Amino acid sequence: MIRLSAFADEISQDPGEQIDVLTRHGVKHIEFRAIHGTNVLDLSEEQHRDFRARLKDAGFGLSAVGSPIGKIRITDPFDEHLARFARALDVADFYECARIRVFSFYMPPGDDPAIHRSAVVDRMAELAEVALERGVVLYLENEKGIYGDRADRVHDLLTTVDSPALTHAFDPANYVEVGQAIDAAWTLLRPFAAHFHVKDYSEEQHRNVPAGEGDGQIPVLLEDAVRHGYDGFVVLEPHLTVAELSYGFTGPERFADAANALKRILDEKSIPFA
């Protein structure tokens, strides 16, 4: 079953507006990255209590904690980051959401990724081990500049770590941006794809576009995923106005374009969703 979600901070930093806009579009889950201009891991306990109450009152849940874990340089010290990961696990517990989005570390520009493979594998294995002990699943997202920017390296990480606590959040636009052939990436990673980010990218226009208008082959991928039994979240992360390394923004008006484009694809492919 396809369940719709969204990075609601792409709509607004105001939690009330996030929930109102998503409700209008029939989306009842949030990939929780930020409110009040503050990252999910840096919010106060009071802010978390207030947001959790808002979600409960509106009948919302979280598709995942959209953490920035793994968005440091592979050459940076890891101990402090492990403490931040512990915070992510506590946040996941607080929201009763056993899913956390993670990354696989930035590499110094120009470095051969093979130089850093061992360090990345070791760090991902440690994160997965701790997550497994806590009953949490990590969703490894591909991204430009990260060790796991291309499908072969994502596949290598997943199969080498080989943990039920580490799986893949497939982001078509991010693959397109690094010149990765989408059909090859999907063929290789479909068995590991437990989370799907709806972000499309046009190589011709050099920008993000609504789903189905770029080179991410989102209609084909979603149809194939469902045919092969995909049961999970499809998460809007449109980046239609701003697309930065750690931040994307779409706004409430353009979010409507993104949501309508996704629902149109699902309807045309006769894919049920909730």
Rank of each mutant, 00 (worst) to 15 (best):
L62I: 04
G61K: 14
S67P: 04
T75I: 05
A86L: 11
S118C: 09
G70M: 03
I100G: 00
P77F: 04
S67T: 04
H81Q: 12
L89F: 11
P113S: 15
E80R: 06
Y106P: 00
S67A: 08
S104V: 02
S63C: 12
S67K: 01
D112I: 13
I100E: 00
V102T: 03
F105L: 04
P113T: 05
R101E: 03
A64I: 06
F94G: 08
D76F: 07
G61V: 14
T75P: 08
H81T: 04
I72R: 13
V65N: 04
S104H: 02
F85Q: 01
L82Y: 09
L62C: 14
R101T: 02
R87M: 13
I72K: 07
F60A: 04
R101N: 02
D93M: 04
D112P: 09
P113M: 13
A83S: 15
I69Y: 00
I115Y: 15
F94N: 07
S118R: 11
P108C: 13
E80V: 13
S118Q: 08
F105K: 03
R87F: 07
D76N: 06
H81K: 12
A83E: 14
A88I: 11
R73S: 08
D111Q: 11
P113A: 10
T75H: 10
F105H: 10
